[in-house]
Amino acid sequence: MSEERPNHDGRWTDTAPGPAQRGSADVTDLPAFTERSLGLVIDLDTCVGCHACVVACKGWNTEHYGAPLADSDAYGANPVGSFLNRVHSFEVQPDGDAPARLVHFPKSCLHCEDAPCVTVCPTGASYKRSEDGIVLVNESDCIGCGLCAWACPYGAREMDLVEGVMKKCTLCVDRIYNENLPEEDREPACVRTCPTGARHFGDLSDPSSDVSKLVAERGGIELMPEQDTKPVNRYLPPRGKDGELDVLAPFLEPVAEEPKGFMAWLDSALERL
């Protein structure tokens, strides 16, 4: 049953669930084991905070998985739209007199192994896929109670205020396996668009994958480990900054202190050329 209503610009709203979701889950218990753990690795040393991933995500997911991501009061005083990925920025003030630093910090669903958002869901709409660990909302089952969003420590779920269903990052499940896309495009929209290449996608359960190697090399971290959600996504911490590494680098040795002396040096240097 699809109810169509044209909106102001002649684009069409489709209130029925998109093609991505049909059928119901049996239970919302977490799978005991997932064959793979697909997720993102985000490099905080490289992210410039451009929000490209935010809007690419919005664009793809408005048009694809589930209900479109709507915006209410879009041109008014208090616009509120649903986004599946957001970029924060934090200021870090080191102890001592080193200058403060700024870190841009993208955040979407971390596809936790022990996802509390799944177990609290009363309808089975929220589930974690056993084949790849992706946590999804089956929108046709979602009653929009919001409990899963409460249960997520990371703020990775947003209720769509127009459609009344829970929205979250799908890890672009409708891209990564999509046979209608060229092979190279079978990656999340946010990863594809990120201009600095700060976002990496892969299987974190496979120690030989590029993402696992990055995590090992750069000391990738989990967010809020004390929440025991076992997130799959990892963050690569910013590298040392402001000469923390080479404060002892030597100054240049002068060849001359005066223009005259410099001219003399120049003559001898030119001789050697």
């Binding site: 920025s89 934090f90 403060a100 700024l102």
Partner: peptide, 17 residues
């Protein structure tokens, strides 16, 4: 712990997303 940035100093939200 939320940001993992604690190791390098005091963390403060600068700008919301």
């Amino acid at each position: 712990t939320a940001t993992g940035l604690g190791g390098s100093g005091a963390v403060r939200s600068f700008e919301p997303p």
